[in-house]
Amino acid sequence: MAKFATLTQDQTRSIKLLGLPLVYALLLLAVPLGAIVLFSFWTQDFMTVDTTFTTANYREIYDSPIYGLLLQRSLMVSGIVTAVTVLLAYPVAYFISFHVHPSKKSIWLFLITIPFWTSYLIRVFLWKVILGYNGVINSGLLQLGIIDEPLTFILYNVNAVIITLAHAFAPFAILPIFVVLEKIDRSLLEASQDLGESKFSTFLRVTLPLSMPGVVGAVLIVFIPTIGDYVTPELMGGAGGKLIANMIQTQFLQLNNAPLGAALAIVAMLCVTAISLIFVFLNRKYLRGRT
């Protein structure tokens, strides 16, 4: 064997093993992603695709107010959903990590993940049943005499989309925060209290900063996929609650304008990525400032 062998046997085997999933991901992810980038610079000419390089699609997205409006609304909805989901999830993750007996933690996590694995479509539809004109909330409130007429602001608008998405992504937010909270050395908290901090200030000065990586993970894992959901806005959003994903879907499946759809998908991706990176960057800076 060479004196300075660059790779050990174990490393070679590891590379070979990773090769199969890598090739699969390259063929089914990298190549298709490259294809839509390429497509976004082409144009749809009735039934055929005109393959001359052009930025026409991007110009159209920039010029027509509808796309900007949808994108803005999408980012806002995703942002609100993320904030609501993570804020609601944090206390639950904290509760399970700090106040649930270790032997019962698994069962709590299991209970939280179960709804996530049950038919997404039907789950979204059920919110319609809950929030609808004759829905659970309205009929309940009517019977109790709290309202005289069914509430209409809870269905077929952005509010309904936000509630439904926040529900759908709940476990995604809880798990990353929980995992990080579990790793916090409990003696750190005792040390903080020993040094004169109250329980609450210990939380603010020790637990919260240490759990920030989990919060960041939760934010990203909720924020990014919600942009791509068209089911919830379609079912819950009504006319004023449509999002960018609906437009992408329409371009591809109904208007048969794949190049414009591809450009929209790429613009949406870039926005999400940019916002995520800014968020991660700000968070790093903020955390470094503290330490």
Binding site: L22, L29, L33, L220, I221, A265, A268
Partner: peptide
């Protein structure tokens, strides 16, 4: 990279595959 689909919006995966397979 292999784990990427976990955070990628599903619609992106969907349109990318649609483009490559159909078009």
């Amino acid at each position: 990279f292999i784990m990427l689909p976990l955070v990628l919006p599903e619609i992106i995966v969907a349109v990318a595959l649609l483009v490559i397979l159909r078009q």
